[in-house]
């Protein structure tokens, strides 16, 4: 049986919720060891991301990823004003976009203002 990051995330969340407050760090450590024993250590970043996502969703927020073609300065913080306080914002640099910005919500919906998309649409 292959365990997906979603299954791992759900299991560790329930285990942590059931454990006494002082024991929670130990529960998480044991979980990491168990995952490594199963040879799934490479799935840990995805598990953490899944935990983050379920936390944000539980609070009524969304996982928002904003990609820029190059590193920006304080302009990125302006995007926060468009979001709810519960939303989780992640900034990334993606040179493949050529120029512009791409916003992804919950890894399901996308608003693409990048030049790469326009060029593809024009010439493909």
């Amino acid at each position: 049986m292959k365990y997906t990051p979603e299954i791992y995330a759900r299991a560790v969340r329930e285990a942590i919720d059931e454990a006494p407050v002082g024991e929670r760090d130990k529960v998480f450590k044991r979980f990491v060891q168990a995952v490594a024993r199963k040879g799934d250590a490479r799935k840990l970043p995805a598990v953490v991301r899944e935990l983050e996502r379920s936390d944000v969703h539980a609070k009524g927020g969304r996982m928002v990823t904003i990609e820029f073609a190059r590193t920006l300065g304080h302009e990125t913080s302006e995007f926060k004003s468009f979001l709810k306080p519960e939303d989780h914002l992640e900034n990334r640099v993606n040179p493949d976009l050529v120029a512009g910005v791409r916003i992804t919500i919950d890894e399901e919906r996308e608003l693409d203002f990048s030049l790469a998309r326009r060029l593809n649409k024009m010439f493909r």
Partner: peptide
């Protein structure tokens, strides 16, 4: 082609 090019970005469903 460039003159006639219209592009209105909209919210689209995507996967990875």
């Amino acid at each position: 082609e460039i003159a006639g090019f219209r592009d209105e970005p909209a919210l689209e469903a995507v996967g990875t």
